[in-house]
Design a protein around this nucleic acid. Structure first.
Lengths: 336, 336
DNA sequence: GAGAGTTCGGCCAACGTTGTCTCGTCGGCC
DNA sequence: GGCCGACGAGACAACGTTGGCCGAACTCTC
């Protein structure tokens, strides 16, 4: 900035006035300053500025499980959009379900003085006490998809119980009695919620409790495929499968395709190509982007000074039946 | 920090030494300081630190088109992973194909003193001269998927020409003579590259140039569906379609499903569920995550001081034939 | 021509932290 | 017992920017 002042032959103070848009500056002088700024390629150092003005850093942190998962990517996109509308940049990081990594990243963000945090807690036994201080010190946090542990804060959840219930009821209403359920790690809160709601719904429907039809701890696609294969090749295989998240659903479909089997499938989480699959697929659908958007909106209210009691927003689910695509006979085939 | 010093009854400087792990501090004193840090919930302000030490901000910026698109999400995830390995946080933003928005966001990142930039240029006529100064001033930039305009910098591209050529050759080898091509905005560099390579390959194969079988400017799914519908309901409809990116491919499949038509489809960009579709689908595949990873690695080399000539890395493509899933007859159906 | 209003420059301090330098203290060694 | 060296702690300035303040110079108005 000193260089700009020298280049434009004005005082340092005037440069500061110009770059801050103070109106009491002579237009000719302001133009000279702007020209010097352009010539020298000067960019205000917003770190120094924020330090001096004690203003916000205009940055929020988003911690999710895996950016590449379309579910989280949707959340991130919605949050980024909301951040942009609030003139704020978004720092994104993936915890990969590692609580320690989550902790390191969140504290790193706090050191960088983000204005707030959006957090999808890692599934492995996380403890968020360390965030209590940060929240009290003025860095609000909003939790997405999974509630926090040992700290109270705004939370946006999906109505997991209703979603799982509707899925099971959909299947039992169609006469299915042997329903296999596939779950990710139970340490992931939505998984345990979905699983217990599914079990309750099964019981209500009079379906006997069959531990051999419930598999959990399936975090990777190959595990899921193996579990499905094992279920279907056993005695009394299930006539329907309920997959508790989008990755599991893909594993199920892939396994069914490989085995050449056709069982009814319901999956938690909708996805873009769900309607184009060879199999009819019913999904528990909800507005994933809304979770990112609402979470970000809550966060910006907190940043704006809202000190009311922590709120919990629950996103409703709907059951969507994708009929499945059918391939008609080729009409005018080329030689082949 | 002053508060911590008072709390621990030591000097400010000693606190600084402790939080920086300087070894020459009396262990008893260090323990006292650490206790005070914990009691007060002190977190070092890394903005002030970076200001004083003139060190890097340990932050890089990533600007992509749309976080929710799995293609860009993959890039982002790979870049974030690489950033983490370099103890760096990632600021992410979406340009939504708006050059002005891109410019604003990138300059905002520069003001925040990111150590470097990863940029997927917006498709609309962008001009990156404004980055030249930044690059010269020590903020390196690496361009992904699309080359920069009016500035030289490291670039990671996909082998669009080879990919498009292999797609067309795949179809012509199977006897297709009427091949429809669907393209996004031609202002998006990979689109024009893919389209001209496709046209050249068609010509080489002796296919007559048919402007009615080439549609471009299709940025949204409904546009694509309409274009496909129009093509297929015309006289002499194509027997094969080549979609130049993943969104277009979805539009094509969705239109085919709605129309109940079956034509051969090749799509640029692979995607997770490509093998589970009702239609056999051939895709031009490549390692999308590699683009993010290699780009980030190049960037960190530059940040590390590498001043060699700008490099261009081209990611190869392969043609993958997904045979399409087939739904067998239900084996043991429930009543229904 | 005088007073009022406007605009710029310069100085100082401060944001939170760290590098440099200096000084005091203590232990050990001859 | 005295001297030296090492080590630990504190004072000060600086990073780049902005806010507050005052004085100087200029412009406008009556």
């Amino acid at each position: 900035m000193t260089d700009v002042a020298r280049e434009a032959d004005v005082s340092l103070k005037t440069v500061s006035r110009v770059v801050n848009g103070v109106s009491t500056v002579d237009p000719e002088m302001a133009a000279r300053v702007r020209a010097a700024v352009a010539r020298l390629g000067f960019r205000r150092n917003s770190m120094a500025r924020d330090l001096r003005t004690r203003s916000t850093s205009a940055t929020v942190g988003l911690l999710i499980e895996d950016l590449a998962n379309p579910f989280y990517a949707g959340i991130a996109a919605a949050a980024a959009q909301c951040a942009l509308e609030n003139d704020t940049l978004l720092i994104t990081a993936s915890s990969e379900e590692d609580a320690d990594r989550e902790r390191r990243l969140l504290l790193q963000m706090c050191e960088r003085r983000v204005d707030g945090l959006l957090v999808v807690p890692a599934g492995s036994t996380a403890d968020h006490v360390y965030l209590r201080t940060e929240i009290e010190m003025g860095t609000p946090a909003v939790f997405l998809d999974r509630p926090p542990t040992n700290v109270r804060a705004d939370t946006v959840l999906i109505d997991n119980a209703a979603g799982a219930r509707s899925a099971i009821e959909h299947l039992t209403a169609r006469g299915h009695e042997r329903i296999g359920v596939l779950s990710d790690w139970l340490s992931i809160h939505p998984m345990s919620e979905r699983l217990s709601a599914a079990e309750a719904a099964l019981e209500r429907a009079g379906a006997p409790y069959r531990p051999d039809l419930i598999r959990f701890g399936l975090h990777h696609v190959p595990d899921t495929e193996a579990a499905v294969e094992e279920m279907l090749t056993g005695p009394q295989p299930p006539t329907a499968l309920f997959a508790l998240n989008n990755r599991l659903t893909l594993g199920v479909l892939s396994a069914l395709n490989r085995l050449g089997r056709d069982v009814a499938v319901v999956g938690f989480d909708d996805f873009e190509t769900a309607g184009l699959m060879a199999y009819p697929l019913t999904v528990v659908s909800y507005d994933a982007r809304a979770m990112g958007r609402i979470g970000a909106e809550l966060l910006f209210e907190r940043i704006g000074g809202d000190a009311s009691r922590p709120r919990t927003v629950v996103i409703p689910t709907t059951l969507v039946e994708h009929s499945g695509a059918v391939r008609p006979a080729p009409p005018a085939p080329a030689r082949d």
